[in-house]
Design a binder for these strands. Structure first.
Lengths: 173, 173
DNA sequence: GAGCATGTTTCGGGGGTGTGAAGGGTCTCG
DNA sequence: CGAGACCCTTCACACCCCCGAAACATGCTC
């Protein structure tokens, strides 16, 4: 039996932490691309937030204000998808890798169905409309694509006898 | 040669507007991709900000808090770019190096497309409209340009069979 | 002459793609 | 329970082409 998972992309939970007390944890969360809201102690200078997945609010704060900022972070974290630009660069969270022509063809359907399964047939037809060159060409190119996108914290997971699924690497793991 | 001033690219101004009074203007600014900070009147519910170029703050607010949010928006909007001045000096983050004529021609397209790929053909035509002197003249000059701009923490990255991409060196690496 | 800008040659590294082969994991059928 | 079929992963290799970089040559300017 397969692991039953939420079939749509669940927005990631926002982590609340105190500023500046918990600053080490902030760095750690940034590495994992986890959305976070810094609660700034009265009198302390506010942090320098460059990451769109980070926000802060001055204490004491309105409850509705905190909720509004949390909602924004949830929206932003759930909306982020990889993008393949016209120059063959795959962008994700501000970083990029360059893809070879075949890899671009494969990445297309995977990105369109980001978080859901793209069938092997779909991928085959997109990369080789004239027919597959050899029996395992798709598999080999998938290995190569996997290795590349690992640098962006993306992964391709196999769904046996169905196809492949592109998703962000779970930072908790 | 006299350098009179640093030609910093003016960071795009952040527009301050009152919320919810000036809500029509907000839409207008969003269309124009202008960064903006909404000043939320006491008691009013905060806006739903999805755009990374938008932020809000509850009134009354600390002066340092407003400045911090403005600074964040400036950073996000004014992705700072290198500038090539009329004297052949390439400026970036307050420092400069001087470029030879050919290097200036090459730097032009790279700066215009800062962060994206500039095609080899584009670069060739810009530097040698009459035709490339030899097979790998472009490569050689690119090596020389690379060496120079390294002092500014800039780098040219190759995108194989497509062209070159100019970007700031990632300090995390 | 010293130093710089530019062009040219040459060697070598490494990417992009296809192919064969070995091997592991899972399911099914006897 | 074991054998085999099926699906997928991974490695190693071959081939071609793109590009990097050093070294050298030439001409120009101060």
């Amino acid at each position: 039996m397969l692991v039953t998972q939420c079939p749509y992309r669940a927005a990631m939970d926002v982590v609340l932490l105190r500023w500046p007390e918990e600053s080490p944890r902030r760095t750690q969360l940034e590495m994992g691309a986890r959305p976070r809201l810094l609660l700034v102690e009265p009198g302390e200078p506010p942090p320098d937030c460059r990451d769109p997945l980070e926000d802060w609010i001055r204490l004491p704060a309105d409850d509705q204000d905190v909720r509004a900022r949390l909602a924004t972070l949830v929206t932003r974290s759930g909306a982020e998808r990889p993008v393949l630009d016209d120059d063959g660069l795959l962008w994700f969270r501000g970083a990029w890798v360059s893809l070879s022509p075949v890899e671009q063809s494969l990445a297309g359907p995977l990105i369109e169905r980001f978080g859901a399964v793209a069938g092997r047939d779909t991928l085959r037809r997109r990369a080789w409309p004239e027919g597959l060159p050899s029996r395992n060409a798709l598999d080999v190119h998938m290995v190569r694509l996997r290795r590349r996108i690992a640098a962006l914290a993306l992964e391709v997971r196999t769904v046996r006898s169905r196809g492949y699924l592109l998703q962000a690497v779970d930072p908790a793991r």
